Amino acid sequence: MSNTALIVVDMVYDFAHPNGAVYYPQNEQILPRIRKVIDECRKHDCLIVFMQHSHREGKFDKELTMVRQNCIEGTGGDELMPELGVQDSDFVIKKRRYSSFYGTDLDLVLREHNIKNVIICGTKTNCCIRATVNDAYHLNYDVIVPRECVATNDETVNDVHLTDIQKYLGRVFSMDELFKWLEGEEK
Score class of each variant (00 low, 15 high):
Asp78Asn: 15
Asn19Gly: 03
Phe173Val: 01
Asn117Gly: 03
Gln87Val: 04
Asp39Arg: 12
Val160Asn: 09
Asp176Phe: 07
Leu80Thr: 02
Arg97Glu: 15
Lys43Val: 13
Gly74Ile: 05
Leu110Glu: 03
Leu162Trp: 12
Asn158Ser: 12
Asn117Val: 14
Cys41Thr: 09
His44Thr: 09
Lys124Ile: 05
Leu106Tyr: 15
Met1Asn: 12
Arg111Ala: 12
Asp61Phe: 00
Ile93Tyr: 07
Ala5Cys: 10
Phe173Asn: 04
Lys36Pro: 01
Cys71Glu: 01
Val172Ile: 13
His17Arg: 09
Tyr23Ile: 03
Gly74Met: 06
Lys180Pro: 05
Pro18Ser: 03
Lys36Arg: 14
Glu28Gln: 06
Val12Pro: 02
Cys121Glu: 11
Leu47Tyr: 03
Phe101Arg: 02
Ile72Thr: 06
Ile7Tyr: 04
Glu183Asp: 15
Cys71Val: 00
Asn153Pro: 07
Leu169Thr: 02
Glu40Val: 14
Asn134Tyr: 11
Tyr141Asp: 00
Asn158Pro: 06
Gly76Asp: 08
Thr75Cys: 07
Ala16Lys: 05
Gln69Ala: 11
Leu108Asn: 07
Asp61Glu: 15
Asp14Trp: 00
Val118Met: 04
Gln52Arg: 15
Tyr24His: 14
Thr104Ile: 05
Glu155Trp: 09
Arg42Ser: 10
Leu162Met: 15
Met1Ala: 10
Ala5Trp: 01
Asn19Thr: 12
Lys43Gly: 13
Ile115Gly: 02
Lys36Asn: 12
Glu183Val: 04
Lys167Pro: 00
Asp159Pro: 08
Ala16Ile: 02
Ala5Met: 05
Gly103Lys: 08
Cys149Asn: 14
Val172Thr: 00
Met81Phe: 09
Gly170Asp: 03
His55Val: 05
Leu6Tyr: 03
Val145Ile: 13
Asn140Gln: 11
Tyr141Pro: 00
Ser89Pro: 00
Leu6His: 03
Ser99Tyr: 06
Ile115Val: 15
Arg147Leu: 07
